[in-house]
Amino acid sequence: MVMMLRRAKEEDRLDKELASLAKNQVLAIDELGYLPIDTEGARLLFQVIADSYENRSLIITTNLEFSRWGTVFGDDNMAAAVIDRLVHHGRLLQFRGESYRVKNALMK
């Protein structure tokens, strides 16, 4: 998503891309923090999350606790703003236990 938004910004069509994302009832961001996001990418992702606030459902999966989100967004203040929006109406589901993939791995 970040790469798509960055390309749209470079091609001067970011507003159109954001409007297209806004048409979705649900957005899913899988594995937040797995890959590094630069400052510009973090700002673009923040914009999507902020635009989604109170407008559409947002699902985020991550293995990072909130205290480490500053490293994802490159800024503790931006991370706090994202977390603030997510927890206001959100539900936190925490899964514990053995990984499904590890449990069912062919290599043991």
Rank of each mutant, 00 (worst) to 15 (best):
M1Y: 04
M1P: 10
M4W: 05
L5W: 09
R6L: 11
R6T: 13
R7M: 09
A8D: 11
A8M: 05
K9M: 12
K9F: 01
K9V: 06
E10Q: 14
E10D: 14
E10P: 05
E11N: 13
D12V: 00
D12T: 04
L14I: 14
D15F: 01
E17Q: 14
E17C: 10
A19P: 00
A19T: 07
A19I: 01
S20F: 07
S20V: 08
L21K: 08
L21M: 07
L21I: 07
K23Q: 12
L27Y: 03
I29P: 08
E31L: 02
G33V: 05
Y34F: 15
P36I: 07
D38F: 10
F46A: 03
V48A: 00
I49H: 03
A50P: 03
D51N: 15
S52R: 08
Y53I: 01
E54R: 01
N55Y: 08
R56E: 10
R56D: 08
L58E: 00
L58D: 00
L58G: 00
I60M: 00
I60L: 15
T62E: 02
T62F: 12
T62G: 05
L64M: 12
L64S: 02
L64C: 06
E65F: 00
E65H: 11
E65G: 01
F66R: 06
F66G: 00
F66D: 07
W69D: 08
W69Y: 02
W69V: 04
G70I: 04
T71E: 14
T71N: 14
V72G: 07
G74L: 02
G74I: 02
G74S: 01
A80C: 05
A80H: 01
A81R: 12
V82N: 04
V82I: 15
I83K: 15
I83F: 09
I83T: 12
D84A: 00
V87N: 08
V87W: 07
V87C: 11
H88Y: 14
H89C: 00
G90W: 11
R91M: 14
L92H: 04
L92E: 07
Q94R: 15
R96P: 01
G97W: 01
E98R: 13
R101H: 10
V102F: 01
K103M: 09
A105K: 14
A105E: 13
L106T: 11
L106V: 07
L106P: 02
M107R: 14
M107D: 15
K108A: 12
